[in-house]
Design a protein around this nucleic acid. Structure first.
Length: 717
DNA sequence: CGCAGCACCTTTTTT
DNA sequence: AGGTGCTGCG
C-alpha cells in the first residue's frame, strides 16, 4: 500500500499522529477514537515510508489478546506476514530478552516462570523458613508488598526500613523469597520485568545493540504502565529512539496493581521535544451516551483534559432502572435482552457489566432460567486449573530438579504417602544444607532420619520423576505430556473425586495433550527447547476460561475486563454506593476517582444503548443490604437519563436528585477542610441540600465521617 | 496419613 | 452463599 492511501481512511488528528515526525509522540486517545487503528497505521506508515524495517519495530501491549489483535491487524493492513517485528506483551518481550541473554541476566539457562499461585507458595515457604507466624504475616499480603516493590524497581537493599520493625520483617521475607526463587530457578511475573530492565541497564553493549535495533517503539495503553515498565521503555528509547505512546488517562483503572498514570506527565517532562496529539472524535457511541460520560468524568480533578465528540446522532436517552432487589434487576436485564433479540438483535451485541464478579451469579441464574445463552468472561483460565498445573509440575520437575515449587505441588499428588511430617523434614534439610527440595529428599533417603515408610514413599516419587525424565527424551511434545499424565497417576487420582469434577479434570488433561500437539513455538526464538517454551507459554498465556463460544450469547464481565471492548447494548448493573463505588475505595478521593474512571470506561463501551440499574436491596455475602443509589447516577445530568419501569410497578424517584456542585455549603469534592475536633480532612461526598445537607469527610486522624454541613463548622483549607 | 467438619473471609486482574 | 484452610478423629 502506498503511504497516501494508508492515510485516506483517517481523520485529521489520526493522520497527524500516524505521520508524526517528532522524536517522541504521545497520543491521548479517548474511548472509541480509533486507538488501535492509529497504532497499526503508524507501524504501516513507518514501514511503507521506509522509515523502519520490520526488525526495527517493537510494539508492546499489556495482554496477549491485544498483542495478537495488533499483529493480526498489521498483517491484514499490509496484506502480508511481517517477520522480524517484535509485537508482544511487556512480559513476553522481557521473557524473550532473558532467554536470549540468560547469562548476562544472571539466570540459570532453564529458568521457569511462576504464576502468582506458584509465587504465593514460595512466599509462604519463605515466611515459614523465617519462623514467622503466618497469621501475623499473611503470605498474600507479603506477596503483594514484594510485587509492589518489584514494580517500583526496588530490590531488598533499596528499601529504607527507617527503623520500622514491620517493614524490616517484610524486607526479610522479600530477601528470603528471592533466595528461594533463585535456588529453584524460578522467576515471577514482576521479576521478568525488573530483571529485563536490569539486564539492559547493566549490560551497556546489549543496551546499545537493542537501542540501535529498535528505533521504533510503540506502546499501547500507556496509562497502565508501572514504574519499571516506564524505566525500561526510557532505557530502550535512549537518545535516538522514536517512542510512540498511546493512552488515555481517563481510562486508568489499574493503579491498584502498580500502574502509574503519572507516567503520562512524566513522558511530557522527560521528552521535551515530543508531539502531543489528542484523538477526541468518537466513532462508537451516540451523542447522549458520550455527553453523559463526559459530564461524569469531568468531576475528576487532575486530568490531562479531553472531551469526546461525535458527528453521529444523539440517539436514545440512557435508561435507568430502580430494581426492587438484585434478582429483579437480573430479570429486568434478561427481559430487555430478550426483547432486543425478538426485535432481530443478536445476543452477543449485549453485555452485562458489573463491579465485582460475585454479581455474575444472579445474572447467570436469570439467563439460564430464561434459556438465554451467555458467556462469562474472566475467571478461571485453562492453564490455571489445578489439574493442568499438576500435570505440568511433573514436567517442570523433570526438566529442572531444582524447581521447588513443582516439587511441593506434586510430591504427594496423587497421595503416595508423603505427608506433612516427612515433607517438613525435607524442607528443613533443604534449608539447612542450602539445596533444592529434590536434592534434600535424596540425601534424606540415604540417612536414617526418616521412617522406613516415609523413605519408601519418597523414593518412589524420586524414581517416578527420574523415569519420567528418561522417558521423555527426544519425544514430541504431546507424547511428553501424555507420558507425564500416564506416569503421574493423576487420572486415577481424579477419578476418585466425587461428582463430575473429576471427569472434567480428566477431559482437561486430554485437552492439554491436544494443546501440546498444536503448540507452535515462536519461530523467531528457535534457541529455546520445546518443552521449556511450552511451559513458559503456559505461564505467560494462561488462555481463556471458556472456549470461545461460537454460539450467539450474552456477554457477562466485570467493568475491568470490559476495557477495550464495545457493544451495541450495555447494561451497567449494581449502581449502588458501597458496591460501585466500592466500599473499599470509599475513603480516599483518588480511589473514588478511579472508580469514576471505571464507570466512565463502562459507559463508553456502549454504542447504541446504555442501561443503568441499581437495586433497593441486595443479597451479598449471605445477608441483605439496603444500599443508596450510586453517586455516579447523580453525577450524570438528568437530561440524558430516562427512567424505565417494568410491569406498572411504581418505583419512587428512580433518578436520584442531582448532586449539586457545592450542595450549597461552599465546599467541593476533594477539597481539604478543617474540623475543630477531627482536624484536617478531605471532602468525599455530599447528600441533600440546604439545611439538610450532609458532607462526608475523610479525616486521616479520625476516619470517615458524615457531618451535617450546617453544624459541622468546616473551614476550607 | 487421610478425610471430614468447622471457622474464616470476601474488589477489581494480567502477566 | 460459597470456597478455602486448619483441627480433630479414624
Amino acid at each position: 500500500m502506498n503511504p497516501e492511501r494508508l492515510l485516506s481512511s483517517l481523520n485529521a488528528a489520526q493522520q497527524s499522529a500516524v505521520t508524526s515526525a517528532a522524536p517522541q509522540t504521545l497520543v491521548l486517545a479517548g474511548a472509541g477514537s480509533g486507538k488501535t487503528r492509529v497504532l497499526v497505521h503508524r507501524i504501516a506508515w513507518c514501514l511503507d515510508t521506509g522509515l523502519a524495517a520490520p526488525g526495527g519495530i517493537l510494539a508492546v501491549t499489556f495482554t496477549n489478546k491485544a498483542a495478537a489483535e495488533m499483529r493480526g491487524r498489521i498483517e491484514a493492513l499490509l496484506a502480508r506476514p511481517v517477520g522480524g517485528m517484535w509485537v508482544g506483551t511487556f512480559h513476553s518481550i522481557a521473557h524473550r530478552l532473558l532467554r536470549a541473554h540468560w547469562r548476562e541476566a544472571k539466570l540459570p539457562e532453564h529458568f521457569q516462570i511462576m504464576d502468582s499461585d506458584d509465587q504465593q507458595r514460595v512466599v509462604r515457604r519463605a515466611i515459614r523458613a523465617l519462623n514467622l507466624d503466618e497469621d501475623a504475616w499473611p503470605p498474600k499480603e507479603a506477596q503483594w508488598t514484594i510485587n509492589g516493590w518489584k514494580d517500583e524497581g526496588k530490590r531488598p537493599d533499596h528499601i529504607d526500613i527507617q527503623g520500622d520493625a514491620t517493614l524490616k520483617t517484610l524486607v526479610d521475607i522479600y530477601r528470603e523469597y528471592e533466595t528461594a526463587a533463585a535456588r529453584a530457578g524460578l522467576v515471577d511475573f514482576a521479576e521478568l520485568l525488573l530483571r529485563a530492565y536490569e539486564l539492559l541497564r547493566d549490560t551497556p553493549g546489549l543496551l546499545r545493540h537493542y537501542q540501535e535495533r529498535f528505533r521504533h517503539l510503540l506502546v499501547d495503553e500507556f496509562q497502565d504502565t508501572n514504574a519499571i515498565q516506564y524505566a525500561w521503555l526510557r532505557l530502550l528509547t535512549g537518545e535516538q529512539g522514536d517512542l510512540f505512546a498511546v493512552g488515555d488517562d481517563d481510562q486508568s483503572i489499574y493503579s491498584w496493581r502498580g500502574a502509574q498514570v503519572e507516567n503520562m506527565q512524566r513522558f511530557r517532562k522527560d521528552y521535551p521535544r515530543h508531539a502531543l496529539v489528542r484523538l477526541e472524535q468518537n466513532y462508537r457511541s451516540t451523542g447522549n451516551i458520550l455527553n453523559a460520560a463526559n459530564a461524569l468524568i469531568a468531576r475528576n480533578s487532575s486530568r490531562l483534559g479531553k472531551s469526546l465528540w461525535t458527528d453521529g446522532k444523539s440517539g436514545e436517552l440512557l435508561k435507568l432502572y430502580a430494581a426492587y432487589n438484585d434478582l429483579e434487576e437480573a430479570r429486568f436485564c434478561v427481559d430487555r435482552i430478550k426483547s432486543w433479540h425478538h426485535g432481530g438483535g443478536r445476543y452477543d451485541e449485549c453485555a452485562i457489566l458489573y463491579r465485582v464478579s460475585a454479581q455474575s451469579r444472579v445474572m447467570e441464574d436469570a439467563l439460564r432460567q430464561a434459556d438465554v445463552p451467555y458467556r462469562v468472561h474472566g475467571g478461571f483460565k485453562f492453564y490455571e486449573r489445578a489439574e493442568i498445573k499438576d500435570a505440568l509440575a511433573y514436567l517442570r520437575l523433570a526438566a529442572n530438579r531444582a524447581d521447588d515449587g513443582a516439587f511441593e505441588r506434586i510430591v504427594n499428588v496423587p497421595t503416595r504417602g508423603v505427608g506433612q511430617r516427612s515433607l517438613e523434614d525435607v524442607r528443613q534439610a533443604a534449608r539447612r544444607e542450602n539445596v533444592s527440595l529434590w536434592e534434600a529428599a535424596h540425601r534424606l533417603c540415604a540417612t536414617k532420619e526418616l521412617g522406613a515408610r516415609a523413605v519408601n514413599a519418597l523414593k518412589a516419587f524420586l524414581e517416578l520423576i527420574a523415569r519420567l525424565a528418561h522417558d521423555i527424551v527426544d519425544q514430541p511434545l504431546d507424547a511428553i505430556i501424555d507420558t507425564a499424565v500416564a506416569h503421574s497417576g493423576l487420572v486415577d487420582h481424579y477419578k476418585k473425586e466425587k461428582g463430575d469434577r473429576g471427569l472434567d479434570r480428566i477431559e482437561n488433561l486430554e485437552e492439554l495433550v491436544t494443546a501440546a500437539r498444536d503448540f507452535t513455538p515462536d519461530p523467531d526464538a528457535p534457541e529455546i527447547p520445546l518443552l521449556s517454551a511450552f511451559l513458559s507459554h503456559a505461564a505467560l498465556e494462561a488462555g481463556e476460561g471458556q472456549a470461545a463460544a461460537d454460539e450467539d450469547s450474552v456477554q457477562l464481565m466485570t467493568l475491568h475486563s470490559a476495557k477495550g471492548l464495545e457493544f451495541p447494548q450495555i447494561y451497567l448493573v449494581g449502581m449502588e454506593e458501597g458496591l460501585f463505588p466500592h466500599q473499599r475505595s470509599s475513603d480516599d478521593i483518588s480511589r473514588i476517582e478511579e472508580e469514576r474512571r471505571l464507570c466512565y470506561v463502562g459507559m463508553t463501551r456502549a454504542m447504541q444503548q446504555l442501561t443503568l440499574s441499581y437495586a433497593e436491596s441486595r443479597r451479598l455475602h449471605g445477608s441483605d443490604y439496603y444500599p443508596q443509589p450510586s453517586r455516579f447516577l447523580r453525577e450524570i445530568p438528568r437530561e440524558f437519563i430516562e427512567e424505565v419501569r417494568l410491569g406498572g410497578r411504581m418505583a419512587t424517584g428512580a433518578v436520584p436528585p442531582r448532586l449539586e456542585e457545592d450542595s450549597g455549603v461552599g465546599l467541593k469534592l476533594g477539597q481539604r477542610v478543617l474540623h475543630k475536633t477531627f482536624g484536617e480532612g478531605v471532602v468525599l461526598h455530599f447528600e441533600g441540600r440546604g439545611a439538610q445537607a450532609r458532607v462526608q469527610v475523610n479525616f486521616p486522624g479520625a476516619g470517615t465521617k458524615w457531618l451535617v454541613a450546617a453544624y459541622a463548622g468546616l473551614e476550607a483549607v
